[in-house]
Design a protein around this nucleic acid. Structure first.
Length: 255
DNA sequence: ATGGTCGGTAGCCGA
């Protein structure tokens, strides 16, 4: 089994690349973030024609998440229970025996900004929800754009990013509170070259210079962690014409 | 030199 996560920064623009990548990578489940499409504008027919079932939760202009899967998608949840939010950032679904939680974690804008406080509150509610999801689903995967670089080795220039948004101690502690539930950062179960990132700002030729951060993660519950056979970033689509600023991240499991 | 690019939208905001 192969699962993946990709912040596409507008599915309207990136649909051809998503279809291309589905064709070559053939993931069983793919979580998309920043679709930036209302549900009535979601390109479900094109995705289904590529052999994928799909569930989506979107809004105009901002945010928006979707789950694409080769098997039917059921038991869809689009909000953190008990946390009122008009921003479409959550899509949990069951695919086969896998419980798949796809997230677009708030960016936070800057440490101390009201958006930063919203981010930390959002993550605190997420933790409570995932604790209950873990009680009911052994094969839980939590994927998405977490907008948090877990450690300094996930940052091209840790000094420049020190205590900045995406790297601050409260954000990292909020992420650590998720992994403390028993969810493993699958990427770190394997060896990787230094400077492996998943997001590179469009500005300043940051991709060419590999000035990036690893903020797109696949967290796995123990029953999936023990079956992990690979976890990596597929950098290729970031180098395509008119790319997203994020690359897909992938995890593979033995049957 | 304190910006720099995208995408969506509408003449700026968010990332």
């Amino acid at each position: 089994m192969k699962i993946a996560s990709w912040n596409v920064n507008s599915l309207k623009v990136r649909l051809p690349q998503v279809l291309e990548w589905l064709g070559q990578a053939r993931p069983d489940i793919l979580g998309l973030q920043e679709t930036k499409l209302t549900d009535e504008n979601f390109p479900a027919a094109e995705i289904e024609a590529a052999g994928y079932h799909v569930a989506y939760s979107g809004q105009k202009t901002y945010n928006g998440v979707a789950v694409l899967a080769r098997e039917p998608v059921t038991d869809v949840v689009t909000d953190i229970p008990g946390f009122e939010d008009h921003q479409r950032r959550v899509l949990a679904a069951t695919v086969g025996s896998t419980r798949f939680v796809n997230l677009y974690v708030p960016n936070g804008k800057a440490v101390g900004d009201e958006k930063y406080d919203y981010k930390l509150a959002w993550l605190a509610h997420l933790r409570e929800w995932l604790a209950t999801e873990l009680e009911t689903h052994d094969e839980l995967a939590v994927v998405g754009d977490f907008n948090i670089a877990p450690e300094d080795r996930d940052v091209h220039d840790p000094e420049a990013w020190h205590e900045q948004v995406l790297c601050s101690t409260p954000e990292r502690e909020a992420l650590a509170a998720l992994t403390a539930l028993g969810l493993s950062d699958s990427f770190r179960r394997f060896d990787h070259p230094e400077g492996t990132f998943s997001w590179w700002d469009y500005r300043m030729n940051n991709f060419r210079r590999n000035r990036g951060l690893r903020i797109d993660l696949i967290l796995t519950a123990p029953r999936l962690t023990e079956r992990l056979s690979a976890s990596y970033v597929d950098r290729d689509p970031r180098g395509w014409e008119r790319p997203s600023d994020h690359a897909p991240v992938v995890a593979e499991f033995t049957p």
